[in-house]
Every structure is written in C-alpha cells, then in structure tokens.
Amino acid sequence: MSPSAEETDLVELKGCKILLVDDDRLNLRIIRGMLQGEGYILTEADSAEAALEKYPEFQPDLVLFDVILPGMNGFEACRELRRLHGAQTAPVMFITAKQESEDIVEGFSAGGVDYIFKPFRQKEVVARIRTHLQNRLLSEKQRTLVDQLSRANAAKNKFLGMAAHDLRNPLASIRGLAEFLMDGTVGDLKPDQLELINLIHQASQGMVNLVNDLLDVATIESGELKLETAPVALTELVEKSVMLNGLESARKRTQILFAEAPQVPRLSLDAAKIRQVIDNLLSNAVKYSPPGSTVRVALTTNETGDQIICVRDQGPGIPENERDRLFKDFGRLSARPTGGEKSTGLGLAICRKIVEAHHGTIVAENHPAGGCEFRVSLPSSS
C-alpha cells in the first residue's frame, strides 16, 4: 500500500533543524517533549546573541524565539537575522504569553511568520511547526525548480542562437544565388524555370527572416541585448523607414503616408533597434491590409515630452479574445496576411522587448471605422 501524501510530507520533514531560543529551561524542556518523536534535530540558545552566533553553523530550517529575552529581545533578533541573511533566512516563530494585537502585529512587522502562545497546547504547537516546515521545504523545492528551469532556458537560448547563426549564412547564400539566376546573369530562363527560382527565392527569404528573428529572441532572452545609444532625430528615422518600406508596399499597390512631423528634439536611442521596430510595424500594416490600402504614419509629442510613433492600417483589427497573444513570442492571431506573406509570430514580441529596453511602451488599439493603430511611446529621457 503506497504512503499517503501526508505520510510522505512527514517523512520529508524528518531531519529538519529547529533552533530553540529561550532563557527559561522549563519552556525549552516542554517544547522538546512536544516535538519528541517528530524526527527533528533540535538545538538551543539561551539568548538572542547566542542564537545569532549559532545560526550560521547550525543552518536551521525554523527558529523559535521567545519574545522576552535578556539583552536583545526576540523581535530585535528576528530583524537582525533578516538583515544578516536576507531572503534566505529561516522562518521565525515567536513564543509569548501576550496575545494583544499590538504585540502580534509587531512580531509580523519584524519578519516573523507565526506565534506559539503560552500555556502550550501540544497539538497546536506541533501543527504550527509542521506547517511552516512544510512551507519552507516547498519554497526550497520551488527555488530549485526555478534554478533548473533558468539553466535549461539559458542552454536553450545558447543552442538556438548557435543553430540560427549557423543556418543564416547558407540560407543567405541560397537567396543570393536565386537572385543571381533571376537577374539572367547566367542566361535567360524559361518561364517555368523562372517560376521555380522565384519560389526558391521566396522560401529562402522567409527562412532568413525567421532565423534573424530567432537570433533576436535568443539574444534578448539571454539578457545580452545591449543598446548603443546616441542622439537620434526620430523624424529622419521614420522618414527613411517609410521611404524604403514604401518601395516594397508598392507591390500591393499600398501607400504609406507620413504626416508632416513637427520639429522634435533628438532622443537618446539605439537607432538600428528603433528602426527595426518601425520597419516591423510598417511591414505588418502592409501585410495585413488589403491591396490598394493606405497606411498612415504620424509622429507626435505628448504633454510630458515623450515622442509617439503612430502606425495605422486598414486591416481587420485585433480580435478582443486574442489581444493577450499580440506581443508574445509566436503569438500568431487569426488574421492572415492578405498577400500570402509569411509571418514568424515573433516580430511584435521583439518590438515590445526593444521598446521596453528604451523604457518606452507599445500598445495597439482598434478603430471603430476599421483598422488598427500601433503607438510606440519613447520617453524624452531614459
């Protein structure tokens, strides 16, 4: 017959270490008697100062402090323990005969987790101690699991970065060779051959985009996103992006219109990273708007001096039940590109991380008349 969950928990608690701190030998003897048979390892101290000396060597899982002690009292000792050992300090329970709310609140304010009241009641004492030891073990298990997951995630990011880096060069070569053939450098191609080369070029371009996005995600998640900031004229950055994306959007007969921007002060930005954000927003606007649409871009300044980039499309908008996926990795929505373009589902997640690294925000809102507007707000000082 397999052990119950409670029996398993009790087995795990055996060997837990408890530091008992009281200058009354009778109290210590009573508590020892109550805990006899639980399998705990107990040690004693008759003052707060002695307890603080024993703590680092004994490394208890729980500390029981009498509130009234010679010299430093239990509340002061608890504060000192937390100052010395920080978040890893073992939970502290106080022993007291006082049950006034002011005294109890002071103990919790000092960092204690519970009280044992005199006169002692064995079942209550054992149950309270057992509960806090179980919480301590659960917290340690969670911390261990988080550490393991962090290491696994770091290993994943490293592998992802290496794989993407190794794939990018051959994919770029395939794309380049396809362009070489499409240009007719090696001679004219038959229509069916040209169609196949176009398919190769489109597929390789899609793969290059995916690999680049994966490299960006791996870099950001590994904490290695480093901004190279310098004073940047945001108007010029937006104008350049609009011009270059406009050439691509012409294939869908889509216009990108940039409203006349006011004179704005230069911001300290990583120009390449912010340009990546603008390019992605413009590309998405064209991608999800029907052919022949107009994408409108504006640059404004709010009352606090933050500069705001607005990109409004004529697409289907964002379904309310899918809004939470919008800026997440691989967060594809039900809307599909109107011209068969590829989407990795990583672009907006990368945009959000870049904008947040600049201490800015990025939001999206649907318009009643249709379409969606993305707004990137960049602080005047970051």
Rank of each mutant, 00 (worst) to 15 (best):
L10N: 11
L149P: 01
I308F: 02
T229N: 10
Q263R: 13
R275A: 15
P91G: 05
T219K: 07
E236N: 12
R275W: 03
E195H: 12
K328S: 10
T361W: 01
M243V: 13
T89N: 05
Q134A: 11
P290K: 05
R336I: 14
E239W: 00
V11I: 15
R323F: 04
G107W: 10
A90C: 09
L281V: 07
I278Q: 00
V277W: 03
L64D: 05
N321P: 02
I354H: 00
S381P: 01
F120K: 04
G370E: 08
A152G: 03
G315Q: 08
R25N: 12
Q88R: 13
L333G: 11
K287V: 01
G86T: 11
Q276C: 02
N157F: 02
G39W: 11
I200Q: 08
D66M: 08
P368M: 07
V113C: 10
E12R: 15
L333E: 06
D46C: 07
I350N: 02
M207K: 06
E303W: 07
P60C: 10
R312W: 06
L26F: 12
T219P: 00
M182Q: 15
E57W: 07
V67A: 06
K287S: 15
C372N: 05
R332W: 01
D114Q: 12
H367L: 14
L227G: 05
P262M: 13
I197S: 03
S283C: 09
D192S: 14
T43H: 10
S150Q: 14
A230H: 14
L348P: 00
A5V: 13
E6A: 15
L282E: 05
R130P: 04
T219D: 07
G111A: 09
R82E: 06
S382G: 04
S334F: 08
R79A: 06
P291K: 11
A172M: 15
I308A: 04
E100M: 06
L257G: 00
A90S: 13
K123P: 10
E303Q: 14
F108E: 09
F75D: 07
R136T: 13
A164N: 08
R143C: 05
M162P: 00
T344S: 15
L160V: 00
T8Y: 04
F58Q: 03
G184M: 10
L26H: 14
R82Y: 03
I174G: 03
A369R: 12
S293E: 12
M207L: 14
D114F: 06
